[in-house]
Write a protein that binds this DNA or RNA. Structure first.
Length: 269
DNA sequence: ATGCTAACCTGCGCGC
DNA sequence: TGCGCGCAGGTTAGCA
């Protein structure tokens, strides 16, 4: 479910309610997520939250004694709820604050809740991540340099978190369409000029999606339970056999790296 | 080093 | 109605 814009929307939504608050309790109903939730997570109880940040699709809730590292996987979402609200079927974790709680819901359980002491940037899951697509370090130079000699499809290349973080399946197809590049083109055989265009369209789609509050396909809601509105802006994703918005030719679908990829064979080359 | 595959799970929509 | 199938927004581990 959540790509970078959805995680960013969530992060912005929960931050004002969390920073400065003391964690009163952590209730784990289902510890079996992507990795088991460690017992040490209870160390966070009694600590004060100092910041709520995003790195790629990871949410980092920093406290005075360590950091809660969360990932929403494919189907996770966070809600701010009142302590009286009964937990639902897939409400696996509650982080209790003063007067409210942060509740993790994740039907497929591909998400993660981990605890890390020491500098969070040293966490093994974050250590090898590529640059943030909306920050300076990400540009055509970066893509061009790392693509050298790579025979992998460019779509898989930009979805690789070690290259650049936060480009998920929806936005990868969208960015490639806007850049006029076929998703199955080999990464190492794309010109620097085209990477210039691609780095631009990646930033563009992500920024627009954040401005719209994320994309709601089935069930994404922000921390207030509101849906995102980017779905109506999607030009190719999920539009197989429909007319291309630019040339009216039928949109095609091809599985690349186990993921459905949508493109226009006329507008992209 | 690179790149592909399986794996982790549940829910939903579709065709029969 | 019910059942089986295929598919879904992510990412890592493991192997060639």
């Amino acid at each position: 479910m959540p790509e970078l814009p959805e995680v960013e929307t969530t992060c912005r939504g929960i931050r004002p309610r969390l920073v400065g608050q003391v964690i009163n309790s952590i209730v784990v109903r289902q510890p079996q997520l992507r990795w088991p939730i460690p017992r040490e997570i209870q160390t966070a109880v009694g600590q004060t939250i100092s910041s709520v940040e995003r790195r790629g699709k990871y949410l980092l809730i920093a406290t005075t004694g360590g950091t809660i590292l969360m990932h929403l996987g494919m189907s996770g979402s966070l809600r701010l709820a009142s302590p009286e609200q009964e937990p639902g079927k897939h409400d696996h974790v509650d982080i209790g604050l003063e007067g409210c709680l942060l509740r993790l819901n994740d039907p497929r359980r591909f998400g993660a809740v981990l605890w890390h002491t020491g500098p969070i940037e040293d966490h093994p899951l974050l250590l090898k991540l590529g640059p943030e697509p909306l920050e300076e370090a990400f540009d055509e130079q970066h893509l061009w340099r790392l693509s050298k000699g790579r025979r992998q499809a460019v779509k898989a290349f930009i979805m690789n978190g070690h290259i650049v973080v936060g480009v998920g399946n929806i936005y990868a197809s969208e960015a490639l369409f806007r850049a006029g590049i076929l998703p199955h083109r080999q990464a190492g055989r794309i010109s620097k000029n085209r990477y210039q265009r691609l780095s631009q369209t990646i930033r563009e789609v992500l920024q627009e999606a954040i401005a719209q509050g994320g994309t709601t396909l089935q069930d994404f809601t922000n921390s207030d339970g509101q849906p995102g509105y980017f779905a109506q802006e999607l030009l190719v994703y999920g539009r197989e056999n429909q007319a291309c918005v630019s040339c009216t030719k039928a949109i095609k679908m091809k599985v690349i790296g186990q993921r459905a990829s949508y493109y226009c064979s006329n507008c992209q080359s």
